[in-house]
């Protein structure tokens, strides 16, 4: 056990390195998150692989969305918006970390496993794109600021509806993450709704760009309401939420925001599944690879590096 003495705090790097008896892994957390709920037993009658896969799905949605939003850092139109987008990204990253830790603890199912003892960092940095189980909405290029706020509005409305229902999950980790995330997502949705309103009901130029941003996001909405076999099995077990049930609540939000913002509901075909398989099966758009390259390349170039 590390024994603290006065000299620790005199050297900031020593203090950091001694925080948990060892150095921190340079590109991740490198420490045991120590979350009390993580090692909760698998609820009775629930398939362990299914639960791990479901945790990965919800984690990957948040992780990839967070990485996309982080791309606005240093590039947002105003400092306040940069801070807001980074804050939203940080909340999503926090949600992802606990879910990845839970998936790793359960032992992510093949073919999504990297090694026998995957922690959150291994799952984030060393899985290839086909092993990511996020919906394709979160991986697409965010375009301009208008498209980004349209994307946040859809994503936050859907995830809020999903996680609010998940607070009643029989899995204590999912219930705990959801209970925390609901408050955060409410802020994200409010932020996006207010910008969609402001830009949509603004100048002719802002209106046109807001409508175009909504059109660009629209083909990826339908997948949000498509249930995967893992989800269906876990719904029956009282663990997961049926995404087909979320459509009404998300559409009610859009029906509230779009007319107020003088925007027209897009009429665009959904991006189809490939042979019945989509993001939840690891079948992604070409946009995911570059996002993961930015997120993973440094950790892969210097595996096990500490500071």
């Amino acid at each position: 056990m590390h024994s603290h003495d006065e000299t620790d705090d005199e050297n900031v790097y020593d203090a950091l390195a001694s925080a948990d008896d060892d150095g921190r892994w340079a590109f991740g957390t490198g420490f045991d998150a120590g979350t009390a709920e993580i090692d909760a037993p698998v609820p009775e009658g629930v398939d362990r692989d299914d639960l791990a896969t479901y945790c990965l799905m919800l984690a990957d949605d948040a992780l990839v969305a967070s990485q996309r939003l982080a791309g606005w850092t240093t590039k947002a139109p105003e400092l306040e918006e940069e801070v807001a987008l980074a804050n939203i990204a940080l909340d999503l990253l926090g949600q992802a970390r606990v879910l990845l830790a839970r998936a790793g603890h359960l032992g992510a199912a093949e073919p999504f496993r990297v090694g026998p003892q995957d922690d959150e960092d291994v799952l984030a940095y060393f899985r290839d794109d086909r092993a990511f189980r996020n919906v394709t909405l979160v991986e697409i290029d965010l375009g301009d600021f208008a498209q980004t706020v349209a994307w946040i509005l859809v994503l936050a409305s859907w995830r809020l509806a999903l996680l609010q229902r998940l607070t009643g999950s029989r899995d204590p980790v999912l219930a705990a993450v959801a209970g925390k995330a609901v408050k955060e997502l409410t802020y994200h949705r409010d932020y996006a709704a207010q910008w969609v309103l402001r830009l949509g009901d603004g100048t002719p130029l802002s209106h046109a760009r807001m409508q175009a941003g909504l059109e660009a996001v629209w083909p990826f909405v339908e997948e949000l309401f498509t249930a995967h076999a893992v989800e269906r099995r876990l719904v029956d077990a009282g663990v997961a939420v049926d995404p087909t049930e979320l459509r009404g609540e998300v559409e009610a939000v859009l029906d509230q925001v779009l007319p107020a913002a003088t925007l027209t509901r897009p009429d665009r075909a959904a991006v189809g599944l490939v042979g019945g398989r989509g993001g939840r099966d690891g079948v992604h758009t070409e946009a995911l690879g570059p996002v993961l390259a930015v997120m993973q390349s440094l950790a892969r170039a210097h595996p096990e590096a500490t500071w």
Binding site: M1, T35, K180
Partner: peptide, 15 residues
């Protein structure tokens, strides 16, 4: 205290 274990819990959520 030589032996210290700091754990994190998410439930109930902070307000």
């Amino acid at each position: 205290y030589d032996k210290v274990d700091v754990r994190t819990t998410f439930s109930p959520p902070w307000s």
